[in-house]
């Protein structure tokens, strides 16, 4: 059994009325990093995950969660 990483960045972004580019600028990464994290193509580092959590004012586990796949 392997685990994937699910995320709710799009939802948080919508709540904050932000585009990917605006979020990227806010946490100091490129837009491509945000878009690839959102679609699950890129697993972010702990630093990026913590920056996102800090920016949205939410715990990391509310933004990211493990999905078990067989």
């Amino acid at each position: 059994m392997s685990s994937g990483l699910d995320n709710r960045i799009r939802v948080f972004r919508a709540e904050h009325r932000m585009s990917q580019g605006e979020l990227a600028d806010a946490i100091g990464v490129s837009r491509k990093t945000i878009s690839t994290i959102e679609v699950g193509r890129f697993v972010p580092s702990t630093v990026i995950a913590l920056k996102l959590a800090k920016f949205f004012g939410a715990p990391v586990e509310e933004i990211f969660s493990l999905t078990n796949t067989k």
């Binding site: 799009r10 939802v11 972004r13 919508a14 709540e15 009325r17 932000m18 585009s19 990917q20 580019g21 837009r31 491509k32 878009s35 959102e38 679609v39």
Partner: peptide, 21 residues
């Protein structure tokens, strides 16, 4: 690995449904 460039995805109607807005 970097050939695909998705357009900047703005918040949209689908997200309003998702968030219950």
């Amino acid at each position: 690995a970097n050939r695909e460039t998705e357009p900047d995805e703005d918040f949209g109607d689908d997200l309003d449904k998702e968030t219950g807005a």
